[in-house]
Every structure is written in structure tokens, then in C-alpha cells.
Simulated scan of single mutants.
Amino acid sequence: MNQVDRRTVSRRDSASPRKPQRKNGREKYEKLLDSLEALIIEQDSSEITLANLSQVAGVPAASVYHFFPSVDASLTALAERHYKSFSEALLHLPDIPPQGGWQDLLFELCDLGRSYYEINVAALKVHFGPQSSWALRHLQMENNWRLADTLLKNLSREFELPPSQEWRERLLLAITINDAFWSQSYSRFGRITEEIAAEGKRAAAAYLKMYLGELLERRRPSTQSETSPF
């Protein structure tokens, strides 16, 4: 490993939290994340220090630095908590057929994400804030892949998708397009405005329309006579 590789690995390590294994450590870890959430709601992430986090949480500085080698690592841990929470919300989405076309499923997913950020201001700030480490960008990409998989599952359930091995990638790109509009809105207004959210959905739908067309044929509901050999 050359010197450049060592520096790259070192930066990645410092941006990643060290997760505790013991119960006492897990309790401290969660307490620190609770305190970090409260801090980031009140101030910008660039103003937070680990010493400040230690004081607010009432956790010894040595423990803070053990779990979080840097502020970036603490932000990554908080983002991981919220992405996990959002993923769990996706799992409990009701299987309600869209009233219109495939665009409805895309818009529903976008609206769900925006609603989560409206309720969880800390998640909004961490995702779109000025500090973006390698570890945090990696988590963001993983989250977008999960959204793409959810959208693909829902589309496949309701519609006959044209044969392709690239749907997952295309859906990821559509989600990334929408994400770019949200990022622009946050940079300008500190939130995802209704107007820019609508523009993001239109842009993502316009991209997918090149491959899906305006309308997709709906899947025929299975009947017992079709599935039974008798």
C-alpha cells in the first residue's frame, strides 16, 4: 500500500463510527446520537464539535472519541440511524394500487421521502448539509439503491415492465435526479419547498418516460382458475 492509499484509508476510517458491542456501550452510543440530533436541529453541522457533543450528552470525551474519531463519523452514525428508520417505514408501505399510471408510484415514493425530512429536521440537515464525507456519501448511495429497489418492486407488482436488465440502474438515476432538486432547494431555502419538490418529480418522471413511455400495461390479477391445475 502506497502513501496515497494509506491517506485514503485513514480518511475513510476517521469518517466511520466505531459501533459498540456491549450493552453499556450501546446505551452511550444512542445517548450521543440523541444529543447530536438535538444539537444539529439548533445549529449547523459545521459548528458542532466532539467536545460540545460530550458536554451536551454528559458522556466522557474519551468515550465520544472512541465511538466517533471525528465529527464526520458522528454525522455518519446519525445518518445511518435515520436511513434505517426510513427503510423500516418503506417495509410497512401498504400495497395500494395507484389510481393512475406508473408515475403515481414514483410520486408516492418521492412524497414519502419529503414527508420524512419534514418531520426529521436532523436527517434533512445531515443529508443535504455542507459536510459530506466518503462514509456519508456511501450511506446516501445505499439509501438511494434501497429506494430504487422499492420502486422496482412496486412497479413490477402493478405493471408489465418492458424486458430489460437495467431497470434498477434507471430507477436509481431517476431518484438521483429528484435528489438533486431537493439539494438545490435545501441550499436556497433550508427546506424542500413544495414547488421545487414538484419540479423534482416531474424531472424524474421525464427521464423514466424515455424508457417506460407514457402508459404501461397493468398486470392482470391472478385468479384461482389460472393458477390451479384442476
Rank of each mutant, 00 (worst) to 15 (best):
R146C: 06
A135C: 14
L147D: 01
F159S: 10
R157L: 15
E169A: 12
S185G: 03
P163G: 01
S164G: 00
E169G: 07
P130M: 02
L136D: 01
I192D: 13
E194A: 13
P162N: 00
R168F: 04
E169P: 01
N143T: 07
R170H: 09
H138M: 03
R146K: 13
Y186F: 15
G200M: 01
A174W: 02
L161F: 05
N144L: 06
S156R: 11
Q184D: 08
A135L: 12
Q184I: 06
R157V: 12
D149P: 00
R137H: 11
E195H: 07
E166V: 05
A148T: 13
L136T: 00
L151Q: 10
Q131Y: 01
D179I: 13
L173D: 09
W145M: 02
S133F: 11
Q165H: 09
R191N: 04
T176N: 06
A148I: 11
P130D: 04
L161D: 09
F159T: 12
R137G: 13
L172H: 13
F189S: 15
W167Y: 08
W134F: 14
E169C: 06
R137K: 14
L173P: 07
N154E: 08
Y186E: 13
R157S: 15
A135N: 13
A135Y: 13
E169R: 09
L151H: 08
D149H: 03
L173R: 14
L173N: 08
R168Q: 08
E166K: 06
P163W: 04
P130H: 03
E142A: 04
F181W: 10
S183F: 01
L172E: 14
Y186D: 11
L147Y: 02
I175N: 11
S183R: 04
I175R: 09
A180V: 00
S132C: 07
E194R: 14
A198W: 07
R157M: 14
G200H: 03
R146A: 12
I177V: 14
I175D: 04
N178T: 07
L152V: 04
T193M: 09
L155N: 06
E195Y: 11
E194P: 02
Q140P: 11
L136F: 06
P130K: 02
N154T: 05
T176W: 04
A198C: 09
T150E: 14
I192M: 15
E199V: 00
R188P: 11
Q184C: 08
A174K: 02
S132I: 05
Q165D: 13
Q131I: 11
E142G: 02
E195L: 12
E195V: 14
R188W: 15
S183N: 01
G190Y: 12
G190F: 09
R168N: 06
R168K: 06
W134H: 14
W145E: 05
W134D: 12
S187Q: 15
E195A: 13
F189H: 15
F181V: 03
L173Q: 12
L136Y: 05
L173M: 10
G190E: 10
W182T: 00
S185C: 00
N144E: 02
A197Y: 00
A180H: 02
S183Q: 04
R191F: 05
L152I: 01
Q140R: 12
T150C: 14
Q165A: 10
W134L: 12
Q184G: 09
E194W: 11
P163N: 05
L173F: 15
L152Y: 01
W134G: 12
S156G: 03
L151E: 10
